[in-house]
Amino acid sequence: MPFLDTLKAKFAGAFTTSTFRDNTRVLMDAEKTPDVLLPLLKCLKEECGFDFLAELGGIDYLNYPHATDRYCVVYGLTNTATGERVFVKAFTNDPDPELPSVVELWKGADWMEREVYDMYGVRFLGHPDMRRILMPTEFTGHPLRKDYPLRGYGERHNFPTVTRAES
């Protein structure tokens, strides 16, 4: 993969690579992520032609076998000219999960980053509008974290009831 050589020349030591089936992955080092992530993605976009952010999603690796870092954000990039794909995984940890925002590179990242913030509580620094997108604004939890129960804490039934006579 020529783009991996470009990356290795510029950001040696900041990432490792792995492949599984047809997915090529670039795994960022958690320590260096805040400084390196944005330049690396910029290099991928501008020098290697990965101009299409196909997907941006979060993962919570709590209790995952052999996992060392808790939160992960996956950037799935596609080269629209050649159809190549690469997945960049950036890690971050409690108590303040934070990552740099990529809205300046891909405008489509706006809502996807808001969704990750809503579901996992990972804040994106430099995002223009960091608020909840799917859950109500007064909701306090982050539902897709592994320590949040499937059925919630009873928020779903916390509403008044309208009877026949009142309506």
Binding site: F20, R21, E55, H66, V74, G76
Partner: peptide, 19 residues
């Protein structure tokens, strides 16, 4: 396998992928 993977299909609305 203890692994992860992205795949996508072209559905009517666009690229529907699962990670």
């Amino acid at each position: 396998p203890v692994e992860e993977l992205y795949g996508a299909n072209e559905t009517a609305n666009g690229e529907l992928g699962f990670y």
